[in-house]
Amino acid sequence: MIPENLIKQIAFIKEIDKIKYIQRKTKLFNSDRNENDAEHSWHLAVMAIVLAEHSNEPIDVLKVVKMVLIHDIVEIDAGDTFIYDTQKNHDNTDEERIAANRIFGLLPKEQANELIEIWEEFEAGITKEAKFARAMDRLEPLLQNTSNNGGTWREFNVSYDKVYNKKKVINEGSTTLWDFAEKLINESVEKGILNKE
């Protein structure tokens, strides 16, 4: 007889395969192909492992990895909201909360509760792990856009001020990575791939 927990876990595993189909606006490094949410989450997880030494505080790296791997699963139902969207707020939405309860709710109760708590912690951005995870989430597309001659910044006519204000959250997780990111932003202005109006 197959354990009930396993049946629920397999249902969840099948459901989250859909994250591979959620297209982001940002393109892969040096590419014109859009990244999907699964690629984004995997990349953030590796970044968290590799860059953990630059966190402002000692962190539980496994917890950060869990955060970045699951943070966009809600987009299976809620869709991806472009960080520079002018019509819809990028902050946590009711749609995302409903999605989190449905998707994580496929799991056995204890696992579902753990992942919902981790997702909520990431969204709140208050703990040292959440701050570092959010730094990874903001750094990766910055690296992509600078590798793509401005990428989505140019495509959607995003200004320096908007980029700077969205990216400065990196500083909360890592001043070292923020110094690096700020330098890239300023160099992008000098290169003419980011407009400072």
Results as ranks from 00 to 15, higher is better:
residue 32 D to R: 14
residue 33 R to L: 10
residue 34 N to H: 15
residue 34 N to L: 11
residue 35 E to C: 13
residue 39 E to L: 09
residue 39 E to P: 00
residue 41 S to V: 07
residue 42 W to A: 14
residue 42 W to Y: 15
residue 46 V to E: 11
residue 46 V to W: 04
residue 47 M to P: 00
residue 49 I to H: 07
residue 50 V to F: 10
residue 50 V to P: 05
residue 51 L to D: 07
residue 51 L to N: 10
residue 52 A to Y: 02
residue 52 A to H: 13
residue 55 S to C: 15
residue 55 S to L: 08
residue 56 N to D: 12
residue 57 E to A: 15
residue 59 I to G: 01
residue 59 I to S: 05
residue 60 D to G: 11
residue 60 D to W: 03
residue 62 L to G: 09
residue 63 K to R: 11
residue 64 V to K: 00
residue 64 V to N: 04
residue 66 K to G: 00
residue 67 M to A: 06
residue 67 M to Y: 02
residue 67 M to G: 00
residue 67 M to K: 00
residue 68 V to R: 00
residue 68 V to I: 08
residue 69 L to E: 02
residue 70 I to H: 01
residue 71 H to I: 05
residue 72 D to I: 03
residue 72 D to C: 06
residue 73 I to A: 01
residue 74 V to N: 01
residue 75 E to N: 15
residue 76 I to M: 13
residue 77 D to I: 04
residue 77 D to T: 01
residue 79 G to D: 01
residue 80 D to T: 14
residue 81 T to V: 13
residue 82 F to W: 13
residue 82 F to K: 04
residue 82 F to G: 05
residue 85 D to I: 04
residue 86 T to Q: 13
residue 87 Q to H: 10
residue 89 N to P: 03
residue 90 H to C: 12
residue 91 D to E: 11
residue 91 D to Y: 14
residue 92 N to T: 14
residue 93 T to A: 12
residue 94 D to V: 13
residue 96 E to V: 02
residue 97 R to D: 13
residue 100 A to K: 07
residue 100 A to T: 07
residue 101 N to K: 14
residue 102 R to E: 14
residue 104 F to P: 03
residue 104 F to Q: 00
residue 104 F to K: 05
residue 104 F to W: 06
residue 105 G to E: 06
residue 106 L to Q: 00
residue 107 L to N: 09
residue 107 L to K: 01
residue 107 L to G: 06
residue 107 L to W: 07
residue 108 P to Q: 03
residue 108 P to S: 04
residue 110 E to D: 15
residue 111 Q to K: 14
residue 111 Q to I: 11
residue 112 A to S: 14
residue 113 N to C: 09
residue 113 N to G: 07
residue 114 E to F: 08
residue 114 E to W: 04
residue 115 L to R: 03
residue 115 L to K: 04
residue 115 L to V: 12
residue 116 I to C: 06
residue 119 W to L: 02
residue 120 E to F: 09
residue 121 E to V: 02
residue 124 A to P: 03
residue 126 I to M: 08
residue 127 T to R: 02
residue 128 K to E: 11
residue 130 A to I: 13
residue 131 K to N: 10
residue 131 K to V: 03
residue 132 F to L: 12
residue 135 A to R: 06
residue 135 A to V: 05
residue 136 M to S: 08
residue 136 M to P: 07
residue 140 E to K: 02
residue 141 P to L: 02
residue 142 L to W: 02
residue 142 L to M: 10
residue 144 Q to L: 05
residue 145 N to V: 08
